[in-house]
Design a protein around this nucleic acid. Structure first.
Lengths: 174, 174
DNA sequence: CTCCTAGAGTTCAGTGAACGAACCAAGGGG
DNA sequence: CCCCTTGGTTCGTTCACTGAACTCTAGGAG
């Protein structure tokens, strides 16, 4: 079902779920379109500039532009000069991003390519977002990102910078 | 950005993120396409039959068929006769579904249309999936679904049945 | 045995979103 | 003034979603 690398298939996702009487549907109208979740993830990793998102995600400029605008409109991102920065509302998406990523690692036999360590104690947070050592939930600002064993070597400058350990939400410099 | 009710816009979402070196991208290849997350949600609510998914979601039969097959292939659902049932791997998506839904309620000013109560104590679980009374994470089988204040009245038989309180994962009968 | 119906899909033409390459605009050096 | 980088927009092509019509199979009723 997954075409080999090189053939990048496409599929259409949807934005509207008008008939659905459910807050999950509302959420998916905001972050459920193709690429949107990966843009939010990159924002957590410290990506802020249009060109950095573009280089790292290989998403068409037109789509990236539309997604960023839409995220700003809905209040997930805020535009600060040429930077796109997560708002409070956006930062609260961290549990969603982290839980989904951990689910894939634990059930799709995907080796982790990034590890999230509680900066205060160096412990890797669990699938539930709790620090095993401290027993508390860890906010993204308190997490350090490290390259994991499954990290394949993308060579674009953004990928390179993202492999060096840093705090989540800390802006990267390319 | 959200068109008024009646105009059901469409957008394309994608399935492949071949170039992405990230387990989140792997997860989105499985559950990131249009409708897929809502199908999984319905499965948690107790929906199991093709026609019930179809009636409740208003998704084209062709798409529903493709999504169900794909979810079976990836091991999120298991086919039991004419029933599509969540596997263990599928049930572990509950935190993702619940966190996303709660995020929308808390940040998109969407009134909850469904409440999830810890069956053992009747307490509504928090955005983090923890029972405030018991202090523990609650598995979906331990949750009772109740209609919330934001429930608009869809009149299809599946929606009607889903408004009566029942355990998550308990098959509904229409 | 045959007809009838319901459930579970498949097929297919039309539409619209994503793709990607080319183009445009503004700002900063040299 | 010209060139280069950043941050987009435009536009033709491709491809997934949509919705309506059609098929297939399994039960019942007569």
């Amino acid at each position: 079902m997954n075409p080999r690398a090189g053939t990048v298939g496409r599929m259409a996702l949807g934005k509207d779920y008008a008939a659905q009487d459910c807050s999950l549907a509302r959420a998916l109208e905001v972050v459920g379109e193709r690429w949107t979740m990966l843009i939010v993830r990159d924002a957590f990793y410290g990506v802020r500039r249009f060109s950095d998102f573009h280089v790292h995600l290989d998403v068409p400029r037109a789509v990236l532009s539309a997604r960023l605008q839409s995220l700003v409109e809905t209040g997930v991102l805020r535009k600060d000069g040429h930077d796109y920065v997560l708002t409070g509302m956006g930062r609260e998406l961290w549990p969603v991003v982290h839980t989904l990523a951990r689910w894939a690692e634990d059930h799709l036999s995907a080796e982790p390519c990034r590890l999230f360590l509680h900066a205060a104690c160096g412990t890797r947070v669990g699938p539930d977002g709790l620090c095993a050592a401290c027993g508390r939930a860890v906010a993204p600002e308190e997490l350090e990102i490290h390259a994991g064993p499954g990290a394949r070597r993308r060579t674009d400058p953004v990928s390179v910078v993202l492999r060096s350990p840093h705090r989540l939400l800390d802006p990267i410099r390319t």
